[in-house]
Computed example of a mutant assay.
Amino acid sequence: MNADRRPPKPLDPALLEQLALRYVERFATTQGKLTDYLTRKLRERGWAGERPADAAGLAARMAERGYVDDRAYAEAKAASLARRGLGARRVQQALHAARVGAEDSEALAGQVAENARDAALAFARRRRIGPFGDGAADRAVREKQFAAMMRAGHAPGLARRIVAAGPGELFEEEF
């Protein structure tokens, strides 16, 4: 690191708002994640404003203006994770980590549950599990496949049925 480099200028209200605007224009985010980002920047750079900094208030103003929408973020994130083959438990964990509120998270629970079967089949297809495998798997392989499906957040019953299905056995109406 360069020894003669000056430390960054402390933030004031205008700079803090500028940082927030730049963040929301670059990233899909939630109010909670924006608050965390602004708090971290305040901790790193310091504060030069007259009143105490209010990162949460600024994030709320960004949400009021429509720059941050927790529900839209949650819907997009849930759909993306389902396409990747992750189950309901993993989707809920990701939404919690992104600081999506309980109300928005619960509103998506029905949609996530509806897509559980398709997500599990997408995961099985990607990992060549059960009906998408290339041969009959022995018990140890099936246990590993079941464990992988559980780590991906799928329900135990659904994971067992998919892992137990032989190559090409899967019928759409079964699951």
Rank of each mutant, 00 (worst) to 15 (best):
N2V: 02
A3W: 02
A3K: 03
D4R: 08
R5P: 02
R6E: 04
P7E: 01
P8F: 00
K9V: 08
P10C: 08
L15V: 06
L16P: 01
L16T: 01
E17Y: 04
E17S: 07
Q18H: 12
A20N: 00
R22M: 07
Y23I: 09
Y23R: 11
E25G: 11
E25I: 09
T29I: 00
T30R: 02
Q31G: 14
K33V: 15
L34E: 07
Y37F: 15
Y37W: 14
K41E: 12
K41C: 09
R43C: 02
R45G: 01
G46N: 00
W47E: 00
G49F: 04
R51G: 06
P52V: 09
A55S: 14
A56F: 07
G57R: 13
L58C: 08
L58V: 12
A59L: 05
A59N: 05
A60R: 13
R61Q: 14
M62L: 13
A63I: 05
A63N: 03
E64Y: 08
E64Q: 13
Y67E: 08
V68W: 05
D70I: 04
R71E: 03
R71L: 06
A72F: 05
Y73Q: 06
A78M: 01
A78C: 02
L81F: 05
R83W: 02
R83F: 02
R83T: 06
R84F: 07
G85F: 03
L86I: 05
G87H: 03
G87R: 03
R90T: 13
V91C: 05
H96D: 13
A98C: 04
R99Q: 13
G101I: 00
A102L: 05
A107S: 11
A109V: 05
Q111E: 15
V112T: 01
A113R: 13
N115E: 14
R117L: 12
A120E: 04
L121K: 08
L121F: 12
F123L: 11
R125L: 03
R127S: 09
R127T: 08
R128C: 09
G130F: 08
G130R: 07
D134C: 09
G135A: 15
G135N: 11
A136M: 12
V141M: 13
V141R: 15
V141G: 08
E143V: 09
E143Q: 14
F146D: 04
M149I: 12
M150S: 11
R151W: 10
A152T: 05
A152C: 04
H154F: 10
A155P: 05
G157E: 15
G157R: 14
L158S: 07
A159D: 07
R161C: 08
V163T: 11
A164D: 14
G168W: 11
F171I: 09
F171V: 13
E173Y: 13
F175Q: 06
